[in-house]
Amino acid sequence: MTTQINENQFDATELEAQFAATIKAKDRIEPRDWMPEKYRKTLVRQVAQHAHSEIIGMQPEGNWISRAPSLRRKAILLAKVQDEAGHGLYLYSAAETLGATRNELTEKLIAGKQKYSSIFNYPTLAYTDVGTIGWLVDGAAICNQVPLCRTSFGPYGRAMIRVCKEESFHQRQGYELLMTMMRGTEEQRASVQESVNRFWWPSLMMFGPPDDDSPNTEQSMEWGIKTHTNDELRQKFVDMSVPQAEALGVTFPDDGLKWNEERGHYDFSTPDWDEFWAVVKGNGPCNEQRVAHRKRAWDEGAWVREAALAFAENTAADAADTDTAADTDTANTADTTNTTAEETAK
């Protein structure tokens, strides 16, 4: 392949210097640029994890589509879950520019070789959870994703821009759902508080382990893949969420949560990192169910993928035959016309 021959003409250090200069200038790396193998691998891992999270993330909320309380709520939930599928596809598309294939990514997910966000291993026990997920889970996702719009790898940043535009709808529909319930019965208000209690800590864990226990952060920041540390983003999320909780009329289940005048931030307690690692390692409430569901959809859809491909091949073959036939027809028609013209002339 010519590309590889050209690559060999380069001195490796020259390529690395070009890459480093691009990163330093805060310019973007594009798919056909040379990049260190570790940069590529780190990105494939992160983008795949992100894509899988969107796809697996359809399940907890999809659980409530058939039982949404009104047609309005059902239409909103359908649109939201469809968006999550779309976000997954934008991200798989970005991962493919790094040389990963779509099938390979899906197969790694269902084999448990690639991860997705641990938040989706928690169950949605009540319809209220749809609101809480929109507000807190999508709210945390926005905190994570907004800085990623400026990540150093072009296709990933562009996918994030599209995702962020749509996440705002997700968060607002969730918050509005909860506001509506807070104006309802005592039972509904209790349901909101109970749901928030369950999702608060897992939402804080979405930012990943604390900085001193996050081995990839330093290198990722050096490469411009990440621009903020996990703890910085977690703090930002807490600061944003507290006034929203007050406006809604709920509390977060943390006695240590209070404003720190000196820091200009809210103090909060340490999440249960043992629980976090247990869920990441596969022992959350729904890990098996989520992966089994994805595997079933993948396996049961295999014949559709194959049939569509076979249909496309047959149609292309038929079209080629018809073209040949059509050419012959045109020639015959031309002959007939000539004959008729001659006859008329007579």
Binding site: M35, R40, G99, R102, N103, R305
Partner: peptide, 25 residues
């Protein structure tokens, strides 16, 4: 090779439809 595929990558040089995979557009 497609416009958006990195040259050093595993997929480079493969035919667009890996066995059973729909083509990329």
């Amino acid at each position: 090779m497609s416009a958006e595929t990195s040259p050093g990558s595993a997929a480079a040089g493969k035919t667009p439809a890996t066995r059973g995979e729909w083509p990329l557009y």
